[in-house]
Design a protein around this nucleic acid. Sequence first.
DNA 1: CTGTTAGCGCGTTCAG
DNA 2: CTGAACGCGCTAACAG
Lengths: 353, 353
Amino acid sequence: MGAGSVLSASPQPHEPGQDVVQPATLADIAREAGTSASTASRALNGRGYVSDAARDRLLAVADRLGYVPNASARTLKQRRSRVVGVVVSDLGNQFYATLAAGIEQVLREADYQMMVLGDNNEASEEVEGARTFLAMRAPGVIMTPVGDRATGLLRAQGVAVVEVDRRLAGVDCDAVVIDNERGGREAAMHLAGLGHTRIALLGVETDWTSDAGRLDGYRTGLRNAGLPFDERLVVRIPLHSPDTEARIEALLDEGAPTGIFAANNTLAERAWWVLRRRGLRIPEDVSLVGFDDVPWMEMVDPGITVVEQPTLELGRRAARLLLRRLGGPTLTTAVEILQPRLVVRGSTGPVQA
Amino acid sequence: MGAGSVLSASPQPHEPGQDVVQPATLADIAREAGTSASTASRALNGRGYVSDAARDRLLAVADRLGYVPNASARTLKQRRSRVVGVVVSDLGNQFYATLAAGIEQVLREADYQMMVLGDNNEASEEVEGARTFLAMRAPGVIMTPVGDRATGLLRAQGVAVVEVDRRLAGVDCDAVVIDNERGGREAAMHLAGLGHTRIALLGVETDWTSDAGRLDGYRTGLRNAGLPFDERLVVRIPLHSPDTEARIEALLDEGAPTGIFAANNTLAERAWWVLRRRGLRIPEDVSLVGFDDVPWMEMVDPGITVVEQPTLELGRRAARLLLRRLGGPTLTTAVEILQPRLVVRGSTGPVQA
DNA sequence: CTGTTAGCGCGTTCAG
DNA sequence: CTGAACGCGCTAACAG
């Protein structure tokens, strides 16, 4: 990064004479209004009986003093905060960012705060996140799970957990996911329908249900089309693998696919770059299908055919599921499955003779 | 979105017999280890004298009980939390997401938590965010400011504030920004150097220093190149304006520019779409320069010439500045200015005869 | 309708 | 080196 920096300092000291006042407390405004703290509390929260006269006076004083309730004190007392925890794989990825945005929308309407954390798909960081939320006495947590330890920790303490985007095998937990099997199937069948017989899958080397589902769908799609399943056409790459592009190159060399199904937006991007660098034409030499529509896919030429998923809605639903669970801790586990949609663009075409 | 949904519910009740235990407290582990709570506190925080024997015992018990300190109680006691507030314009925008990622990196190394909020460039939401952080007793807040009320509120209560990406006029505050003037100047001079004389600026209708700087730079660039400044070639569009593309169309119709400098990544994207929809060739018919390099700019054909800014570093520096301020509340105000860099790609070319 | 009392869990005196 | 006492700010019970 060509980023030098200049430090310029103004001569005046920071916050000159401005003496810092302690935040006003309930006791302060009670005293000022001539009532007890309890009455002040009732007035400001609108709970319990308070005479109109007292309420008006209290509200006025609170306003004048710029009263802001101390969240810690309240949480300590109620043993439960209004902050919902969210832990996603990678805040920098458009998909997770959008997911978080959807969650926040719903939460904020219900007057909850959201605190997002990123594990880097490291179970250890996920657990650390769980501890953070435990420490904050979050009533619930929404996450794209990587291991089951975090969920276990949380639920053992009575924290509601909702899984989003993927589920953990063997964990009975509220969840909202995409019908990945169907997405994978449609992708494979679309390519097969164009005459491709050597269709590769680019996936992530994990035990996530999301990738497993896409792989399953891919196999089913091939079968439906009467195509054999060829192990060598399936490349599963560990997250953050430094040789991701090398693996894709190897696939091209050894598998000679005419169609590639990249099971997430990142892999689609990497594949796209590899194809371009090699001077392979899309779709004449290789057809490409992605999973999870992101802006660049519609901007490149040709546009990328993709299995689109309702990402924002995924987040919204997860938040609603959590709110539901907060209201009824003993409800039956619910799993919502949202449908993806194949969007055909120019990156897929008939196989060449 | 073509997303139907299926609700499938498993028959078992949620959390069957699993009784929810109350989280262990300091008192619990003290009792278990045969000491007082004070000693337990000292042992677990590593502050004050504790015999090795007691410490070992305490640590073991804490571990066994899965002790997680109650953040609220701690914050209440210390009157200051470890959560730093961050408020940005739009979490969905790659730029702000990356900014937040940079901030989090540094904060987490210093053992602080980050809580991100998005105002939608609404001063009211920004103020609401400030109140949230006040309520949480955040020691500091980093923000891309929209109004001065939030900053005022925060600082009146002794909360450290750092502005990032843009500054507010008249507020004496730590900040880290890009040299926008230089960025704008380089963009304009690059276009002028290619022979363009009708160079348009697409900016945001705000009083932000970022856009003002880019506009200033643009004017200076024109002047350096001996070109006149033409008011009609400057289009400043309100945020979230529904007729953004119409305004760009109008610019094309009425200003007939051969070069466009779009002052942020969103405007560059909109401009790109308008040009494409009109069938205008880049750069033969119109040259395009963006500000803030994002992935699609390198993927489209031709690639977009852009003023790149060190976004992640911007966030990192802001966090460091905040940490510095937390350590020394009376230090002199510091403003760091990072340098952008012009990256020339195919979207700019010589003006056509 | 209102005030008093008590305690949420922790860290920080201050005696021992 | 350790424990007892106290209070951070708030709200839920309970009398009045």
